[in-house]
């Protein structure tokens, strides 16, 4: 399987993953797809015990969206966020797997 991924796309994906808050957001979206900004903020506080401003969360979501890891859709007039694994799979094929294959199993 050949998936064309350019360096910019890979950069965006790995940058997006390079932050614990964003990884936790992805984890929660995987568990429960279709969350509003409000819901994401509430679960960040409830589950991580960290109080982050809506603006901060919103900026993290923008970055995840740019990397294609989060897709948005509208439910009525509310914007909902859902995890999209496709960029992860592409990054795995284009980069991670190659190096895993080359290396040994240790």
């Amino acid at each position: 399987m050949l998936l064309s991924v350019d360096d910019d796309q890979l950069d965006n994906v790995f940058k997006a993953l390079g932050d614990p808050i964003r990884r936790r957001i992805l984890g929660r979206l995987a568990k429960r797809p279709g969350q509003s900004l409000f819901e994401i903020c509430v679960s960040s506080v409830a589950e991580d015990g960290r109080t982050l401003s809506r603006q901060t969360i919103s900026q993290h979501l923008d970055m995840l969206e740019r990397a294609g890891l989060v897709q948005t859709h509208w439910s009525g007039r509310t914007k909902l966020h859902t995890l999209d694994n496709a960029p992860l799979r592409k990054a795995a094929v284009a980069w991670l797997n190659k190096h895993l294959r080359k290396g040994n199993t240790t």
Binding site: L37, F38, T78
Partner: peptide, 10 residues
């Protein structure tokens, strides 16, 4: 109102 609803804020 619509900005609040967009972000799901009560």
């Amino acid at each position: 109102k619509s900005s609040l609803v967009n972000d799901g804020i009560p």
